[in-house]
């Protein structure tokens, strides 16, 4: 048996081929999932349309308030629309690719996590590749629609530059990463306390709603919770605030990337810690 030296060319080749194999496997599993979903095309289209309409309800609430009162803490409807768009697209991307984390409680309760553990790949990777929830594309459509229309209006008035649209896409992707990190950390709690559905409302749903509005409107404890412990505000509010000229420096644009790296590392650590404590419920 030969031992590979760390960082040797062979090891690098090994890790890159494993990475490629993981990519191929992920693609294979996801495309199988998509094909399965597309067996019921009508159901997919109707549920997507319903969810777009349902999601637009949230924005209509904001729109009615802004129609009546003109601004939220100095943010007009287009500026809030951009923030809303970034948050929604990020949340939608997370829900498409990370939906299994949303229902992770049932894996623990029913003992289904055993079947994830017996695969020769990291459990988190296997879990995320199990399903792609295409119907959640409604969130992306809705966010892109509201955010796109708002951004175009701001570009026309000169409040936003064309190049900033690229930064908004980057902020959306960073938001998706941060939502995933928070969801992984919350799911990890299931290894210890089993039931996490109510906890998810606390760590994911409520912060996701809070993130649709400028964080400056909230009391300090809530604002800083959304910028530290549940750092969803670092992906949307911090960069959007700078892009709209409402304060901050270029560092506001670097924050989302740094937050993603740090949050994913912490979440991954929590996952492994939880996984090491896992006890099957199976017979």
């Amino acid at each position: 048996m030969t031992r590979q030296r760390p960082f040797s060319g062979e090891a690098a080749h090994g890790s890159s081929s494993r990475f490629l194999a993981a990519g191929r496997l992920y693609w294979l599993l996801l495309s199988a999932g998509v094909r399965a979903k597309m067996q019921y095309k009508f159901n997919f289209i109707s549920s997507t349309l319903i969810q777009v309409a349902g999601g637009l309800y949230d924005f209509s609430l904001i729109a009615v308030l802004l129609w009546r009162f003109k601004s939220i803490h100095g943010w007009n409807i287009y500026e809030v629309g951009v923030l809303y768009g970034v948050s929604r697209v990020g949340y939608g991307l997370y829900r498409i690719f990370g939906n299994e984390l949303e229902r992770f409680e049932s894996y623990i309760v029913r003992g289904d996590f055993d079947s994830v553990l017996v695969r020769p790949w990291p459990s988190l990777f296997m879990l995320l590749s199990r399903n792609v929830e295409l119907s959640q594309i409604s969130l992306v459509i809705e966010g892109a629609g509201v955010g796109g229309v708002s951004a175009m209006s701001l570009v026309r008035t000169g409040a936003l530059r064309w190049t900033d649209v690229g930064w908004l896409l980057y902020a959306s992707l960073a938001s998706a990463c941060l939502y995933t990190a928070v969801a992984i950390a919350t799911a990890s709690a299931a290894f210890h306390i089993v039931r996490i559905e109510e906890l998810q409302v606390f760590t994911q749903n409520a912060p996701s709603t809070a993130g649709l509005y400028p964080l400056d409107i909230y009391p300090a404890w809530l604002k800083y919770t959304l910028l530290t412990v549940i750092p969803l505000g670092l992906g949307n509010y911090i960069p959007v605030k700078f892009l709209l000229g409402k304060g901050g420096t270029w560092f506001n644009l670097a924050v989302p990337a740094l937050a993603c790296v740090l949050s994913l590392r912490v979440a991954n650590r929590l996952w492994h810690l939880g996984e090491s404590r896992y006890h099957s419920t199976g017979s």
């Binding site: 802004l66 809070a210 509005y213 009391p219």
Partner: peptide, 15 residues
Amino acid sequence: VFGIIYIYLWKSVMP
């Protein structure tokens, strides 16, 4: 928390 979000939202918009 949802209640707090709406309360502070109102605080920021109301004349």
